[in-house]
Amino acid sequence: MSVVGGDSLPMVFLRLDRDRSVYFPGDTLSGEFRIEGLSRVAINAIEVSVFWYTEGKGVSDRGIHAIWQFTTSERTFDPRRPQRFCTIVPRAPWSYEGAIVKIRWTVRLRVILRGLPSIVCEVPFRLGDLPPAGGL
């Protein structure tokens, strides 16, 4: 679970259903988020994305696997109630800890506010269980 905010600020909760953070291709990745301290009208849009990105010496690359957009125009939408998302974990690329290339996966929640900076909350996870490179 990842929580952003607190005290007088709005709080954003993002969590995956599984306790373990390791997933394998074909697994179901699901979770939910909720937002407290913000009214529906203050939110422009909410975006949840599952993507990989590279870290290391090279320029960072990114590939989006899945993305959901929640619009707050519907009267029934209540950000304080848990909103669910679900996808099938793809076959590649696997999470990787190399010498100059690292591949990471994450679920990102982005709350786009009206007239204010966005709030971003992330839960990283691993695709596969590869050991760090350099063992061979």
Binding site: G56, V59, G63, L136
Partner: peptide, 12 residues
């Protein structure tokens, strides 16, 4: 336990 081949615009 080896990594698969990988290709993105700036990393391989």
């Amino acid at each position: 336990g080896v990594m698969h081949s990988f290709r993105s615009p700036h990393n391989q």
